[in-house]
Design a protein around this nucleic acid. Structure first.
Lengths: 153, 153
DNA sequence: TATTGTTATACTCTATAACTATA
DNA sequence: TATAGTTATAGAGTATAACAATA
């Protein structure tokens, strides 16, 4: 009776990842990372990483939004938003004004410079999308977005 | 002529994120994070985080695969794989054997314990998928996977 | 008492350079 | 000279606890 089994020492020619490729989570993560990689390259000219872009986009479309509201809608933890906001402020892209009827809160407003930058950046982001979905028809892209939102919304 | 524009100090009731929600990258990232959160909870019993799971899955389905091959197929940088492999080894889930015809390389093989664990873990992962896609039909889930793969493969 | 924004801090993840041994 | 695996380390991202000011 043999106690320690002999493992056959074989080499692998091509790696089989078919099981992982059946998982939505695995594919969503790989796809997100691929898009983010391209995003970082194309958006570097605006000095915006994905999270900066998301924050600026929400501020531009919601002038006066508070940090707390930003955190809730983008799933960011409050302590991690602080330095991000400070950076956008010191770049002159946003302005922090007192909240109209809550002395604890601060309203975040885009400056003219911030609005101009984001007008360009959002166009660039949309163009990047069309490149990413190079093999996707616009119908397929719409389907993809709809299905992804069913998962996290 | 007014130089400094007065910004209207208004409050925001509900945050509008409609622009971000048109972007595939934003949606893919949010969906991936939502699934990973659930994955971490449900797979903690196996002591496997998403990357551990992916690595173990590839080793089980490709006995004798090398670190370098793992890195290439899962998009992991070699230095970041080292401690991961050491951990799986010290847990007795894998065994490192000399490569049959490359003295530099090391073949990674699953132990019986590793194979048993992953047999359970892969079933659990597939079940988790069906929960995640609770609002998705199996047809929609298949469509989603296919579209995501078009982006990163 | 609860909430907003903040500080400090720790932990994880990811990235780069450089070394060794083999090819 | 190039490649596989490794070490050391730096940087980015993410997490929790606790505080002051205000509701």
């Amino acid at each position: 009776m043999q106690r320690s089994k002999k493992i056959p020492v074989t080499a692998v020619e091509t790696v089989d990842t078919r099981f992982l490729e059946t998982l939505i989570g695995y594919n969503a993560r790989r796809a997100a990372l691929a898009i983010i990689e391209e995003f970082l390259e194309k958006m570097a000219v605006y000095g915006l990483k994905p999270v900066d872009f998301s924050v600026m986009s929400v501020i531009v479309h919601n002038p006066g939004v508070t940090s707390r509201q930003l955190c809730a809608s983008l799933n960011i933890l409050p302590p991690n938003l602080v330095s991000l906001i400070q950076s956008l402020d010191s770049r002159g892209l946003i302005q922090r004004l007192p909240h109209p009827h809550d002395g604890r809160a601060v309203g975040l407003h885009p400056t003219e410079k911030g609005k101009d930058l984001m007008a360009e950046a959002e166009i660039a982001a949309s163009e990047l999308e069309r490149n990413v979905g190079g093999k996707l028809t616009s119908n397929q892209a719409q389907t993809l977005v709809t299905l992804l939102q069913k998962i996290y919304l």
